[in-house]
Structure formats: structure tokens, C-alpha cells
Computed example of a mutant assay.
Amino acid sequence: MSKKVINQNTNYDSELLNSIESNFIFDENPINRLKNTAKDLKKENDVNQIDKEKELNELKLQINSINDCGLKDNSKKIVLGDGNINSPIMLVGEAPGVEEDNIGLTFLGDVGDLLRKMLMAINIKKENIYSTYAVNFRPPEDRKPTSTEIKRYSHFLQKQVSIIKPKIIILMGSSAMESLTGLNSKISIERGKWKEVIVKNTTYNVIITFNPSYILRVPENKKHSWEDLKKIKQKIVDLKLNI
């Protein structure tokens, strides 16, 4: 004959349960455990925005403080860059022209009009991307920057890339190509090919294409630019980027 084991806590547990009110309220709506996420994300984005603006301003001061630069000495204004600093797309041109030098913004005049049309062909507004140049001052008589000038300013371009942190970089023209990739071959050979460029331990998707100013001079190459634009559009889709 075995003895029944008695749980001496049974009476206590029963009394405790009976003492707890049972008027619970049930709601079919799920508990929103992420109700602060949107607010926190906005706060984080605001902080990133301020940090980027601060770093870009500091970079602008660095570029403006360089000495013995013929480009700077013969220019009216520095053209650092403009557009959406949080954009996943960064566009790099060759150098400012007359209008850009006067106003301090990128891709103005006929060149800017053509660029806007090119971007709109793949449903992108220029103001929704970030654009800059391989060199930040206008070369005299709008000549092509020399390799020495490109190399000198490439250091600043790399810093700018590290600040913007784009998912795609579009290099328009041979100066932009040389500045970020180090390539000095013919752009007709390198254009339209996706490359990976490492800047400060981060890998970036890069594509090389013709500069709009070149297309204005040689309009028969529009077809090649269109081919490149379609590849850019496909990459945007593949990476699921929101622009």
C-alpha cells in the first residue's frame, strides 16, 4: 500500500488564485510592440542627416583651404555637390562649367537639361540623387582636367563617397572614371560595365558612361548612353532601391 503524496501548497495556491480578480479585458487587436519604431527610425535618420551635412561642410572647408591650385585660383566658386545626400545613387561628372562656376551647383544649362531628360527616361528626378564632380573647380576655358588635377581631387571625392554611402555610383566621363577607378583607358571601352570599387574598406557598385556634354557634341552616341541607362535601371530593380 502506497501513501498519497500531498502537495502542501495546494490550499495556498487555490486561495491565491481565488483572490485574483478575473475581470480581464481581451482585445482582438494585436499588441503593437513596435509602436516606437517609426519614431525611432525618424530620429535616427535625422541624426544621420545632420552628421552627413556636418561632414560635407567640413569637406568643403578642406577643399577650399588647399593652396597652389590653378583650378581654384581661376574659379569663382567651389562646386561640392547637391541633391539628396541620403540617395542610394551618386552621380559624378567631370568638372564644373561656366554656369556651375557662377552659381555653385552641378549640371546646369544645356548639359543639365540633357541630364534631366536622361534620368527621367528611367523615372529618376535629378533632385532625388546626389551629384558632384571629379574636380570641384572649373578648369580654365572648360578644358579637360589633367591627370595631376584629377589625382589631387580624387582624395576629396573618395571622402565624399564615404559620407554619402550610395548603393550605385554613376561615373560620367573619363575624368570621373579616372578619379574613382584609376583607369585612364578609353571610356568607349569601359562604359556600360558594372565594376566594384573599394573606398575606405567599403565596396561600391560603379558604372561608367558618357558625360552629357559629350553627348551634346557627339549626339550619335546617345544610343550607347541609353543602353547604359537601361542597365542602371535594372540594377536599381535588382537592388530594390527606392528613389
Rank of each mutant, 00 (worst) to 15 (best):
D51C: 10
E227H: 09
L61R: 15
Y214R: 10
S174D: 05
Q8G: 07
M177N: 04
Q158A: 05
K76P: 03
S188W: 07
N48V: 05
H224V: 13
W226T: 15
S65E: 07
D110G: 13
P166Y: 01
D51E: 14
E21T: 10
M172R: 07
D27A: 13
T37F: 12
T106D: 06
T37S: 13
I6K: 07
K3A: 05
I198P: 04
K52L: 02
V47S: 06
N128R: 09
Q62W: 04
N136D: 11
S154A: 14
R143K: 15
L241W: 03
L61W: 09
V199H: 00
Y133E: 09
N29H: 06
G83R: 00
M90G: 00
F26E: 13
N211I: 08
E141N: 15
I215V: 08
D142I: 12
D101G: 09
R138K: 15
L91M: 13
H155M: 12
I122K: 06
K54F: 13
N184I: 11
N29I: 10
I103V: 11
P166L: 01
S22M: 04
K223E: 14
P166T: 01
E58T: 12
R116Y: 12
T209G: 09
K193T: 01
P212I: 05
Y12P: 04
N128M: 04
I50T: 12
E141I: 12
L180N: 07
I63Y: 00
V206Q: 02
L41Q: 08
N18C: 04
T203S: 14
P219W: 03
M177F: 06
I85L: 11
I236Q: 05
S22C: 06
M172H: 06
W226L: 15
K165D: 13
N86C: 00
N201V: 10
M172I: 09
T181Y: 00
L17S: 09
S65K: 06
K195P: 03
D82H: 05
P140V: 04
L80Q: 04
K223F: 09
N67M: 11
N221T: 12
L61F: 08
E55N: 14
